[in-house]
């Protein structure tokens, strides 16, 4: 089932940037911290889980047409990245649990 980014907010994900992109649809999940690997393999409309928190993740998400970025384990997003995500409308959500826990939450929601 397709879900929208905004629905994640009710499931323990905290929106930290890119509020204007929350109506984007999510069709899958991709987990990886190597940016070129993400560019090569992530499908459009994925929710991307990564521990990278610097500004370049926004460009990667934009170019790979990723719906939102999820930062696990409460890692703090860089200020530059927040600014860029707001500009480009790429939602970034913070999550307390691990990448695995974020992925299974999404799996349950999309079932």
């Amino acid at each position: 089932m397709r879900i929208k980014v905004v629905e994640l907010v009710e499931k323990g994900f905290r929106l930290v940037a890119g509020d204007n992109g929350i109506d984007k649809e999510i069709e899958g999940v991709y987990i990886c911290d190597l940016l070129s690997w993400v560019m090569a393999h992530a499908k459009a409309k994925s929710a991307w889980i990564t521990i990278q928190t610097h500004v370049n993740i926004v460009a990667v998400a934009l170019l790979a047409e990723i719906s939102c970025i999820i930062i696990p384990e409460d890692a703090k997003l860089d200020e530059e990245a927040k600014k860029k995500a707001d500009e480009e409308g790429i939602p970034i959500l913070s999550f307390t649990g691990t990448s695995y826990e974020a992925a299974i939450t999404l799996y349950e929601m999309m079932k």
């Binding site: 190597l34 940016l35 070129s36 690997w37 090569a40 990278q52 370049n56």
Partner: peptide, 10 residues
């Protein structure tokens, strides 16, 4: 930073 994965040219 997640760069230098050796995927650029490929």
């Amino acid at each position: 930073m997640g760069f230098g994965a050796g995927m650029g040219l490929p």
